[in-house]
Nucleic acid binder design. Structure first.
Length: 847
DNA sequence: CGGATCGAC
DNA sequence: CTATGTCGATCCG
């Protein structure tokens, strides 16, 4: 009893309540006071699944805080002093770079949606209203706010707070129109202004102000709107007026007003014009940077404006007592964490800068420092290309796989449409699920080729969904939300190089060894639709084709093998063959055959996930054999489905049929297996469901790549014994320091592993530099963004691989090394050359 | 890369 | 009854 009370009291009730709303309720006469509001919210909330989840999240935050406090305890005065020195050095630099010359404005429409609705429906004007639905409100008018009705509050709770509340449904089309009207005005002051959503924008009016100085009065004169005269609240500015050009105010002639040339006057003009045009009010902040401008616009809200003059002291004064929560980027969690350190205001944030630098990540404490100094961006960079696109939907509990697959497909369809509008294709598909307890999960998968159509996206998403359904089997997956996101778009640069990249991708694939080409089919065809691709051609057809290709190029494998032994001649061969292959690729479209590095069976796959799954299974020990057997049987029998069961998913029903056992024990048990489905399929699903997806280790090549990229160096600064075969060490001793350099031996030629060209230099340093440059060109992405490697890879293996890449030699890879123990040495060598990245050692870079 | 979390509108 | 949708950033593993 005591315990639960404690938990609720210390962590939750406070936190949750704070989160739910209202800390600064100005208890009006017709409104409610803070306590009442909190009580009502609590009553409506307590015991709900939502609330339970809020408590859980709260506990997590508290744990984070606890961890932080423990870290704090361990900090010595020494460390703190040192940090203080370092941070202060940075402060000096930052101070020097402070730029007060720009004049940035942040415009923020007051209670935008609600205001639009009130404008369009006079009946609503004197009432408390909110825009949204019974389940969620987007905003409320100021009248409703007195009752504690806020944005992001569910309507049914708002109703309890304010029974007279009118809830108006959202009408984005209308808001968009109004927003456009406002933007037209803003563009006149800064053609490069930056809209943030529908109701906010940043402007850089520095240039406008310069021009404006010479403007005649009539260019600054604006007329009152005569149409909707009478009861209109014409520009009643809330701002405490300190007009710097009072004389210009007097020049109010008839129905017009002239604005001055100061920043304040410009912003008043903007707000005036907005109100005249849309009958809506806006608040504004004027400051030397975006951060300050934004916080400033909040100051005299609604219908007011505020300026921080371009002086350092003015900035610091503004920040002095400003609660950190008012700072954009600091949300409830950060606020709570900082509060635990006794930091509530921005000046306190500054005082604790040394401590913060020890407790938070670099990005975080730097940001804190910027905030506490009042530094922000002084120019408005247009936001770059979009990085992802998604769609999600909340619904009442859904627990049948059938429904879930069908929603999933719908989402994919919608998303595909949106993607096509912008002509985007992405490589990563993320499925988002929220269960009925409000716990959110995301599952992502990155595929080889970009996806954009409903089918392509769904092919990936349905696998992710299937895995999740399996993971809770035999229980049904009970969800209240599903979302699909596509990310990993090709950048403009990549689009340009895409053609080229595919070539290099194939080339490198061949070097690695288990990626080969198959003429006669287009990439498109191959990658577009899993089920389609795998049914159009049988396993054996592909196998034959692959063999044929190999037969046509007998030197291919051989040369790869010889490459290992630095045979100069065959290496040239290798290069020529590579050319042939890529030429082939250029002239005719090809599809891809992978040789599994474990079982060495050719695998044709249209998705990386599939390939990886196959490899996982192969690595999986005893299960492996069965699985492969089954695969083959299944293949020969059905002439479809290569290694793992694929659900055609023409529609959700089929998914359902194909996964009978997964649904056993649920209401869906009626959908028992159809006799036409072979035993092997059932076995398969069994095997798969026995091994939930989450047991898998994350993949690894990307880790290696990250490592490489971060270190910006393919080779170690330390040279291992093995690499000394190739490099000679020369030592230079200068006065105090001695340094050593490594140069390639006479008889070796360094070949860049990225661009594959011979390097003239013998110096390890120069060579590394070249490789770095190559890497930076992004070519390596083709190698790294794709997991050619088993997802089931131990850390040990990774380090071995990294070691190999860094010059180490031995292949101690436990899974791959031992798997093929039955091979003869030469076979083994050659096979390994093909299959194991461990052999992508330093030797590969020599001719 | 994948997953979780934060934060903003 | 009834607690959003969409996006970018960051951190961690």
């Amino acid at each position: 009893m005591d315990d639960t009370k404690k938990i609720c009291n210390t962590s939750s009730s406070d936190g949750v309540l704070l989160r739910m709303g209202l800390n600064d309720n100005k208890a009006g006469m017709q409104g409610l006071d803070k306590e009442k509001i909190n009580k009502i919210i609590m009553e409506a909330t307590k015991g709900s699944r939502f609330y339970e989840n809020e408590l859980k999240k709260d506990r997590q935050v508290n744990q984070r805080i606890e961890k932080m406090m423990q870290l704090k305890e361990k900090i010595t005065t020494q460390q703190l002093l040192k940090a203080q020195l370092q941070v202060d050095k940075l402060v000096v630099e930052l101070e020097q770079s402070r730029n007060l010359s720009r004049i940035i404005v942040h415009i923020d429409m007051d209670a935008f949606y609600a205001a639009v609705e009130m404008r369009d429906n006079p009946e609503l004007r004197e009432k408390p209203i909110a825009v949204g639905s019974m389940s969620m409100l987007s905003t409320s008018n100021y009248h409703a706010r007195r009752f504690g009705v806020r944005a992001a509050m569910p309507g049914f709770i708002a109703k309890k707070l304010c029974p007279h509340l009118t809830i108006v449904p959202l009408n984005f089309e209308k808001y968009g129109k109004v927003s456009k009207e406002v933007r037209e005005i803003l563009a006149e002051y800064d053609p490069n202004f930056m809209p943030m959503g529908l109701d906010e924008a940043y402007l850089n009016i520095t240039e406008h102000l310069e021009e404006r100085l010479n403007w005649p009065e009539n260019k600054r004169r604006f007329f009152f709107n005569t149409e909707s005269t009478t009861e209109n609240v014409l520009f009643e500015d809330n701002t405490p007026l300190i007009d710097d050009h009072p004389e210009q105010r007097d020049q109010l002639v008839e129905n017009s007003v002239v604005f001055g040339t100061s920043a304040e006057e410009v912003v008043k003009e903007i707000r005036f014009r907005i109100e005249q045009k849309t009958q809506l009010t806006a608040s504004a902040g004027i400051a030397p940077n975006t951060l300050l401008a934004k916080m400033c616009s909040d100051r005299n809200k609604p219908n007011g404006q505020c300026r921080i003059v371009p002086e350092r002291q003015a900035v610091l004064d503004f920040l002095k007592d400003l609660p950190i929560r008012k700072v954009p980027g600091i949300g409830k969690v950060t606020e709570k964490m900082l509060k635990a350190l006794g930091i509530v205001t921005c000046s306190e944030l500054y005082q604790q800068r040394a401590l913060l630098s020890l407790l938070f990540s670099e990005a975080s404490w730097r940001n804190f420092l910027d905030i506490s100094l009042g530094l922000g961006s002084t120019h408005l960079e247009k936001d770059g290309e979009r990085k992802s696109m998604s769609t999600e939907r909340t619904f009442s509990e859904m627990n049948t796989a059938e429904d879930q697959y069908s929603v999933c497909r719908e989402l994919c369809r919608d998303l595909a449409q949106d993607l096509q509008k912008e002509g985007l294709k992405g490589k990563t598909v993320t499925l988002k699920l929220k269960n009925v307890n409000f716990e959110v999960k995301t599952r992502a998968s990155t595929v080889l080729s970009s996806v954009s159509t409903e089918e392509e996206i769904f092919a990936v998403a349905k696998d992710l969904l299937g895995t999740e359904i399996d993971s809770v089997a035999p229980h049904p997956l009970r969800i209240r939300l599903m979302g699909v996101r596509v990310s990993g778009f090709l950048s403009e640069e990549e689009k340009k190089y895409q053609q080229k990249s595919i070539t290099s991708f194939l080339k490198s694939g061949k070097e690695i060894g288990f990626l080969r080409l198959q003429p006669g089919k287009s990439n498109q065809e191959y990658f577009r639709n899993k089920s389609e691709a795998s049914t159009t051609r049988s396993f054996f057809d592909r196998k034959r084709a692959a063999r044929q290709l190999n037969g046509e190029n007998p030197s291919l494998n051989e040369s790869v093998g010889k490459q290992l032994f630095h045979d100069r001649k065959s290496s040239t061969n290798f290069v020529e063959e590579t050319k042939k292959v890529t030429d082939l690729q250029n002239s005719t479209n090809v599809c891809k055959i992978f040789t599994c590095p474990v079982c060495f069976e050719d695998q044709s796959s249209n998705s990386l996930e599939e390939l990886n799954r196959h490899i996982d299974v192969c690595l999986g020990g005893t299960l492996v054999k069965d699985t492969v057997e089954i695969t083959k049987n299944y293949d020969s029998k059905e002439n479809t489905c290569n290694f793992l069961p694929q659900f055609k998913n023409k529609n959700a029903d089929e998914c359902q049929k194909n996964k009978p056992d997964l649904l056993a024990g649920t209401d869906q048990s009626a959908s028992t297996s159809d006799n036409s489905i072979s035993n092997s399929t059932e076995k398969f699903t069994q095997i798969i469901s026995d091994k939930p997806h989450r047991e898998r280790q994350p993949s690894n090549l990307s880790d290696i790549a990250k490592n490489m990229c971060m270190k910006q160096c393919l080779f170690p600064k330390r040279i291992s014994r093995d690499s000394e075969d190739h490099f000679e060490k020369t030592e230079h001793t200068e006065e105090n320091s001695s340094s050593c350099f490594f140069e390639a031996k006479e008889d070796s030629v360094l070949v860049c592993p990225v661009c594959n060209s011979e390097q003239k230099t013998r110096s390890l340093v120069s060579f590394n530099r070249h490789v770095d440059v190559c890497l930076n060109k992004g070519l390596i992405q083709e190698l790294t963004e794709k997991k050619y490697f088993p997802t089931k890879t131990s850390n040990m293996e990774i380090s071995n691989r990294v070691g190999a890449l860094s010059g180490g030699q031995q292949c101690t890879n436990p899974s791959q090394g031992t798997k093929r123990s039955g091979l003869t040495t030469s076979q083994s060598a050659s096979k390994k050359a093909k299959s194991s990245n461990s052999k992508h050692t330093i030797e590969m870079f020599f001719k």
